[in-house]
């Protein structure tokens, strides 16, 4: 049980970052399916920078910057007329993964410094609890970020502008806001967060760089955003839920229950599909979805 909680927290951190980033992007009315590529690029560049400079935090920052760069590329290509944002996302997914493997080959062997963690298990004498409660700093930052994003989207002028652009492009245009500008910034910020999420994979857990590092977390986070109904706070809980679903398999395996291991891996996808089927309707768009979004039409 404690292993599942600890595992859920570890596994959910990249989900949290990618889903928060995607929420912001989708709130502005764009879908970026390429965040899987951004995540892998973030993992690679974060690891490489941490190895070359010895500073894992610099790695996180560079991973974010690279992610923002990918977001910019997505936004620029999408802002051309008659270009489908979902297709561009798939292209960036291929390109980001390929580029990360291409440039990351030399960094598979050496080991880079890892990110620090906060030992919240000091009160317990049980070593299992201590290990399980070694909370990574990025997870804590992610919680703060979820709260901040919720506040920004709900209660600030910027948040209102982003939501207007995403919900009613004509109204936003009439108010004199640049759709292209707002969407570009939102996609770049989303890419930044996905890059940071990627650096968590290589710099904390599992904590190495190799080509099998991401098992589709970036794509799953897209489903997660739908599950969370575009609400940053829900993103946090759903990330934990997805993380727990992923951690459940190995945890059960460690206590000797090995059958159906792979079926547990499918659980988050089945859950999301079930939720989509349940909440969709041919008569109206998805509840809570920004109405300019291509996937809710």
């Amino acid at each position: 049980m404690i292993a599942v909680v600890g595992g859920a927290i570890r596994v959910s951190t990249p989900y949290l970052y990618v889903s928060l980033g995607e929420t912001l992007t989708e709130k502005s009315g764009r879908v970026n399916l390429g965040l899987e590529g951004t995540l892998v690029m973030g993992a690679m560049s974060g690891y490489a920078i941490a190895y070359l400079t010895g500073s894992p935090w610099l790695g996180v920052l560079v991973a974010g910057a690279i992610g923002a760069g990918f977001g910019l590329l997505h936004a620029v290509v999408c802002s051309l007329p008659r270009v489908n944002d979902i297709a561009v996302g798939i292209a960036l997914f291929l390109f980001g993964t390929g580029l990360a493997f291409f440039l990351g080959k030399p960094y598979i062997q050496p080991s880079a410094p890892r990110l620090p963690h906060l030992a919240l298990g000091w009160w317990s004498s049980s070593p299992q609890i201590r290990v399980a409660l070694e909370i990574n700093a990025l997870f804590v930052a992610g919680i703060v970020l979820a709260l901040a994003l919720r506040f920004i989207l709900a209660s600030t002028r910027w948040g209102l502008v982003v939501r207007t652009v995403g919900d009613n492009a004509d109204a936003a245009r009439a108010l004199g806001y640049s759709l292209r500008g707002v969407r570009t910034l939102a996609t770049m910020a989303g890419g930044f967060l996905a890059g940071v999420g990627g650096s968590f994979l290589s710099l904390y857990y599992p904590g190495t760089w190799n080509e099998g590092l991401s098992s589709g977390q970036g794509l799953m986070a897209i489903a997660l955003v739908i599950f969370a109904r575009w609400n940053p706070i829900h993103c946090f809980w759903v990330s934990l839920l997805f993380g727990a679903a992923t951690a459940l398999g190995p945890a059960l395996q460690s206590i000797g229950y090995t059958s159906n291991y792979y079926l547990f891996n499918a659980a988050p996808y089945v859950l999301t599909l079930g939720l989509l089927v349940w909440s969709s309707s041919p008569r109206h768009a998805l509840l809570g979805a920004p109405s300019e979004l291509t996937i809710s039409k």
């Binding site: 290509v77 051309l80 007329p81 292209a91 960036l92 291929l94 390109f95 390929g98 493997f101 291409f102």
Partner: peptide
């Protein structure tokens, strides 16, 4: 001595270029 992902990079670039060219 190029990594095997080199072809993946080329495919990704090709895809992006083609989508952009749609315009």
């Amino acid at each position: 001595g190029l990594p095997d992902a080199a072809t993946l990079v080329l495919e990704g670039l090709l895809f992006i270029a083609l989508l952009a060219a749609n315009t």
